[in-house]
Every structure is written in structure tokens, then in C-alpha cells.
Design a protein around this nucleic acid. Structure first.
Length: 117
RNA sequence: UAAAGCAGCCGGAUAAUCGCGCAGAAAUGUGAGGAAAGUCCGUGCAUUCAAGGACAGGCUGCCGGGGAAAGCCCGGACGGUGUGAACCGGUGGAAAGUGCCACAGAAAUGGAGACUGCCGAUGGAUUUUAUAUCACAGGCGAUGGUGCAACGGUGAGUUAAGAGCUUCACCAGUGAUAUCGAGAGAUAUCAGCUAGGUAAACCCCAGCCGAAUGCAAGAUUAACUCGAAGGUUAUAAAGGCUGUCCGCCCACUUCGGAAAUAUCGCUAGAGUUUGCAGGCAACUGCAUUCCCAGACAGAUGAUUAUCUAGAAACAGAACACGGCUUAUGAACUGCUUUAUAUU
RNA sequence: GGGGCGUUAGCGCAGCUGGUAGCGCAUCACACUGGCAGUGUGGGGGUCAGGGGUUCAAAUCCCCUACGCUCCA
């Protein structure tokens, strides 16, 4: 789990991030990037797994936790690169990502972070 | 030894590294379930309203006990299933009334019989009479086929033929009486009453139920203040009060838009542990002990190693609690039954 | 978190005061035509979402389960 300062919390912030329509996919995970930062604030991140992906809460939570853990490790390694230019990021898990282990999810997240400009 | 039945227990553990929620100044402490699930019942709690009354309406349904209550639990009765241990049961009333019972069938509730039939004792006719005969009067409800179901069942006796006929044996129901039991009910005797099914059809009986809305309830604070309607003498109108009606309340009231943040509600409770006492049990009483998630894009995770059992199932709190239902892994323990073998 | 509704032929729907399931489109065959379209006639196709119960009999009544849709900010 991430510290609170890095979390995307507001509903309107989520909406604003989706509106930019700057998205990319990898291994069943979709990344939405928001607008570019003006001030020197930390980049906020949200993780989403829809109820339509799977009915059971346990499986959805598992996927969210894996995505979060991967991002946290990247943050620790200071390997986030260009993604920190943006005010907000959202990772969306889909049916393809369901049931994959940590290594597969981690690879997908790393690809997305590296691909962003 | 094998196969069953019932009950109980566990719901992964340890270590390393990196992390999160809540409380706290910090050190540190603490952090998902037996079902947290489905939302099928029932409570608490909150808001609005309630002078009330009538009629509707809903739920439950053997007996006794427990419980705050429940479509809940325990014990018993009865019925059914099983060789048995045991298990299952929405189990009041069809003799208050109404409806329905397709097709088939003579007939589907009205105490029927008109189809197919049996008889011709009694009376009558034919005949001298008897015997005999009869599209006679009439008697009968056994026989045949239909159907889930045919007006108690089976067997005998009686008879012209027959029949629960009340003559008899056994059985089923019903009613009365007696005994036992707290009661559901059980047993015995007598009566001779025989009445189709369906109430998860309407209904009747008994018991229970203020209504509506659910923590997105609701309270406090800050900020924007915008639109619409009716009334302002009375009536009317609008709004509200329980589904309807009677009746009642209000004189600034109702509806809507935008915003949807912060704090509270928010977890000490029909609570947990252990012991003793009462009770067959459910459960209750007393003492003792403990404080045990409280988020708001929403906390328990990731990786590695070892082990149980080489790879741990079902599954994630969102106001709380009591039940029910459904999902689910591996191992173990106790009691009981049946069968076989040996002593 | 709390309500409501639905599931019937390949598709869209009836039937839900119990008596053995239909309609339209689609599909198949035949006829009309030189052929196509079109029209007409005839036919096939159903675990009535799944399981259990009540009843002589259940798509229909009752209970449980699954899936889908929808409302309350």
C-alpha cells in the first residue's frame, strides 16, 4: 500500500484524468495519464478493477494489490522516469490480467511506465 | 475387519526483507470470517408522522419449554423412510360456506345411479291348477369398464337377488365414556355414525403485528444563494397524517436545482474467556477475566525459504447483533448401528 | 448498503385465476416464374434458467440457487 500523499482520492480527479484520453495497454493492464504538472507536487496514482471484471471481491482486491505493489517497488527504485511529469495516473485491471502472478503484472506495469513520454 | 449414522475439532505455522490502516507526542500496540456472502426472517438504532376510530392488510400454524424477537433453538407427540443406529415433515379446520376436480366414465358430491347388469321371493298378467313364462309393478347396488379418486376395506353368513345388512371375524376412520399424562396424545370399552380430494384455492379458527423509510438513516458546521407553486378576510387550494374512509394538523408552507466537503453517527456490546450452580437439553443465574478492525478510490499485502499434507478450499468487515440458507479443503477424535470372523 | 423486475423455439414476445405451450420474424420442402424477388400451402424445431416441495396433474402455486437488467447519491 502506498502512503496517502501518492494516492488519487477525489472522484472529480478520476474523471479529469480519464478525459485526457492518453492511454496505453500491456498484459491486461491499461494506463491512463492525466495532464502535465505545473507545481512540484507528488504524482498521484489510482488503481481500478471494475466489478464487471469479476464478481468476487477477493479476486479483484488481489489484482489491485499486485498492481500497487509493483508501482511501490518502482517508486522505491526511483525508476518511474517520465511518468512523474504528470499530475495523475490511473491503472485499470481487465479480465486478461486476472489470475496472473506478481512477475507478469510487474512486467506489464514496467513496460507501461517505460513507454510513457 | 468392513460399511454406515450422529456429534465434535481446525480454518495454516515459522523466519527474513520491503510496505499499509487505526490509536498514540513517541516508544509501541493493534488490524477480516466461519461463513464477513445471499439478504430469506427478526431486533436494536435513526428520521418523519401518529387525538383517534372503522374496514382492509400481512405473517405464523401438533404440544411443552427457551429466547429481546424470529420463517429461530431444545425436548416430546404423531405420520413417513430405513434391517438398524438414525433421519425427514409449511403437522389447525374439508361435519360453517363457496370454488375447482381436464380427458375418461352411467355418475365427480346431490347422499347419485338414466349405462352394463342381477332378481322376479311379494303383487299382477298368461294358464284349469302346479310348473313355467314376462320389454309388468317393483326390488337390488354385488358385477363390467373409466379414473388420482366411485360413498368404509377383506372374508364368511343370510337372501329371490343382494347390500353394514348390525349377523360375525380382522382392519381403518368418527363419536362418547373411563384410565394415564402438564399437554400434543396413548390405551381400553361401548356406539353402529361411514363422512371423496384440494385450504403452498378463496375462506374459517387461534395467536401475533402502529405506518413508512433504511447509516446513501440522520445530526452539526461552513459556503452558494437560484427557480417554481399555492395561500396570506373566510372558504377553497396545496402539503402532511397508514393502504382506504371518517376525521385531524399547518398559516409561510411545499417542491426542485446547485454543491455534495469537514466533523459526528462509528463501535463496550442481548459482548469475550474461564469456573461454579440449576436444567434431559435449548438456556439461565452468579463470580471472574479481557477490550478485540473501524476505512471513505476504501487498510492484512509482495517476494523468498522451511514445515504440516510435494501445490490450503470457499472466500474480504463498511451501523451493530440473533438466526436461517448457500459455498468450502485436509487430517483427526468420540459415541452408536449393521454384517462377517475369532475367543 | 438497501429495494424492484425478469429468464418460454435461432431472435422478439404471448400464455402465469393449475389440465400437458402458442404468435410474428427466421429456417426447410413444395407450387406459381425461363430465373430471381415476392406470394401461397405445408412441415420441423422447446430439460418453459437449475434444484426441491404441494397437488391425481405445475411454464403456472410455494421454497432454495444461478444469471441478467434496473432504481435510491
Amino acid at each position: 500500500m502506498l502512503p496517502k500523499q501518492y494516492r488519487l482520492k477525489n472522484k472529480s480527479a478520476f474523471k479529469a484524468t480519464y478525459k485526457v484520453k492518453n492511454s496505453s495497454h500491456s498484459g491486461g493492464v491499461t494506463l491512463f495519464a492525466g495532464i502535465l504538472k505545473k507545481e512540484n507536487a507528488p504524482t498521484k496514482v489510482g488503481f481500478v478493477v471494475s466489478k464487471k471484471v469479476h464478481k468476487r471481491a477477493v479476486k479483484r482486491n488481489r489484482l489491485k494489490r499486485l498492481m500497487r505493489e509493483s508501482y511501490r517497488l518502482l517508486l522505491k527504485e526511483n525508476a518511474l522516469g517520465h511518468s512523474q511529469k504528470y499530475l495523475s495516473l490511473i491503472f485499470v485491471g481487465t479480465e486478461k490480467a486476472l489470475g496472473k502472478n506478481f512477475k507478469e503484472i510487474d512486467n506489464a506495469i514496467r513496460k507501461l511506465i517505460q513507454g510513457i513520454e
